[in-house]
Structures are given as C-alpha cells and as structure tokens.
Amino acid sequence: MNGAIGTVLPYAVGIAISPVPIIGAILLLLTRRARVAGPMYLLGWTLGILAIVVPAALVGSALPHDQQANGDGWLSKAMPLVIGIVFAYLAYLSWRSVPSKGAQTEQPKWMTAIESMSPGKALVIGFGLGFLNIKGALLDLDAGFSVAGQPAATQAVAITVFTVIGISTVAVPVIAYLIAGHRMDGMLEAVHTWLAKHGTAVVATLMTMLAAQSLGHGIALL
C-alpha cells in the first residue's frame, strides 16, 4: 500500500499546484455568493478528478497482468515513454507561455464572468477544470494507471490520498473562507496576484520534472 501511495504522490502534487483552479476558487471567494459557490466549485473540481482517475484504475486493472503498470508487456513499457513525451511537449508549451517581466496577462473569459456566476455554474466550471484540462487529465490518467492491478483496498486508499492532496489547494481557501469570511480577502488577493504572475512558470517547471521522471522510468523498463 505504501508503494501505491508513493507512486501517486507526484501526480497529486501536480494537480494541487495547478494555478488555474486555485485562481478560480479565489475569484469565487471574493464574490457575494462565495459561501455557496465556493463549496459547489470545490465539489465540481473533486468530481472532475475522480471522473478520470477512477475509470483509469478500473480500465488498467482489467488489462492482462503483463500489460499493467508493473507488468512486462509492451503497453506497460510504452506508457511511461508516451506520457513522458506528452509531458515534455506540455512543458515546452508552458515555458513558451511564461510572460516576460512586466507583461500583462489576460484572464480567460470564464474568470471575468465569475462575479455573477451562480452556484450551479460554479459546480460545472469546477468539474470542467478537473475533467477537461489536458494537463490535469494526464496526471489523473497516469495516477490511475499506476495503481492498476493492486488490491481494491489499496487502490481505494491510494486514490483517496491522491484526491485529497490534489484538491487541497482549492479546499483550504474554501474552508478558511467559510470559517473566517471576509477577513480572508487580503490574503486571497495576495495569493491571486502571485499566481497570476508566476503560475505559468510553476506549471512549466512541474511539467519538466514529470517529463524527466516518466521518460526515465520508461527508459529503465526497456
């Protein structure tokens, strides 16, 4: 079980430090409907992650044993290489997107519409960020596949740990706001400003590290 948890930890951290979901949560918490929209957004974000990692683990477990994550089949050997190449490409795109010093970054349209967003729409946006974001989805898939073939209890614990860590950076500000209310506004604004400036560089660094890890693992299996 410890091995399964250790395997998913890097992917969980990757989900946790993804800046866009955190920024979305912070912007929601600065609106009038924060006490309802914030938890709904967190619920959607959680469900979006689970909607990928759980099926990935189930599908991976249904494969022949030699094709699972720790098997000797061609799929188990090719998967880390393919994922590593995709991570490398995403890292390249992320580094290209890092804004130059002093440059202004534009927010996505859905972020600018957050002030008037209903709790239902917050749920949908949270789910979409968890399910449709290519970088996050890739981390979810890799985490799910990495625990495939393990006993059901081990998979359940590993996926729970993965999900709790992954949603933690959205859950913490939401829970803190429910407790402290508008006393959190100054801190939320400061975190939002920092992420808006440095979030892309954080993601680029993460993608680079995950690419190196996956490619190294794939090469070792050859």
Rank of each mutant, 00 (worst) to 15 (best):
I85P: 05
T154K: 01
L47W: 08
G166K: 11
N70F: 14
K77S: 15
G84C: 13
V36D: 09
G48M: 08
K121M: 14
A204V: 04
I52P: 00
A171D: 12
G73M: 08
E106F: 00
G166P: 03
L141Q: 03
V86T: 05
P80G: 08
T105L: 06
E115Y: 01
G128V: 04
W74T: 13
L222K: 00
T160R: 10
T205W: 10
Q107C: 00
T208I: 02
A204I: 05
M117H: 05
A113K: 10
S61R: 03
L138K: 02
V147F: 04
A62R: 07
L132M: 14
L28K: 04
Q67A: 10
T200N: 01
P21H: 08
L210S: 07
A156I: 13
I49R: 05
G73S: 10
A12V: 08
A16T: 12
L27D: 00
R183Q: 11
D72F: 08
K101R: 09
K101P: 00
G6S: 07
A220I: 08
T200H: 00
A34Q: 04
V170K: 06
T31L: 13
A51Q: 11
I125Q: 12
L139I: 02
S94G: 05
Q155K: 13
V174P: 09
A57S: 14
A196F: 01
G218H: 07
L30D: 06
M40Y: 09
L28H: 02
I159S: 04
L50E: 08
A37L: 06
V53K: 10
G166H: 07
Q150V: 05
A16G: 05
I134A: 12
E106R: 06
L93R: 11
L93C: 03
V203M: 14
D185C: 01
L42N: 07
T160H: 07
S61Y: 01
A201S: 12
T7L: 12
L138M: 15
L75R: 02
G44I: 08
P119T: 10
P119L: 11
S168I: 01
L63A: 15
I15A: 12
T193V: 11
E189Q: 13
V203L: 14
